[in-house]
Design a protein around this nucleic acid. Sequence first.
DNA 1: AATTTGACCCGTC
DNA 2: AGACGGGCCAAAT
Length: 121
Amino acid sequence: MTPAAAAPEDAAAQARERILAVIRAIPRGQVMGYGQVAAKAGLPGRARLTARVLGMNEDPDLPWHRVLRSDGRIAMPEGSHGWREQSQRLRAEGVAIERGRVKHMPRSGGDDLDAALWGPG
DNA sequence: AATTTGACCCGTC
DNA sequence: AGACGGGCCAAAT
């Protein structure tokens, strides 16, 4: 191996992979926020990176539709193709969507932090 | 190489 | 409810 440091490209690529992994791990019928995904991928404060990853994504099997804004709103212009498809896909999974928005969005750390604090039992 | 852009987020008003 | 400002930072101009 060359003693030189790894190309910064690799770090970025790995970050993207971790984000993709988190997204792929979102269970059917469940949603996550961009920031949540980033945080879960070990990249707190990088919500926009999640957005970029989704934007550049080409994997048709990626459940991109399960990623919403922290508000619970679809992160695309209302009425756009993607917007419609996302709401449609979510409804198909049993997620209640109204005007491009889920009723209740799990808050940052809600699940995780709550589980860590209260734990299973 | 500098600037702008963007499927974002959060606290504050 | 919505508006504003600051933070984040890789990719596109």
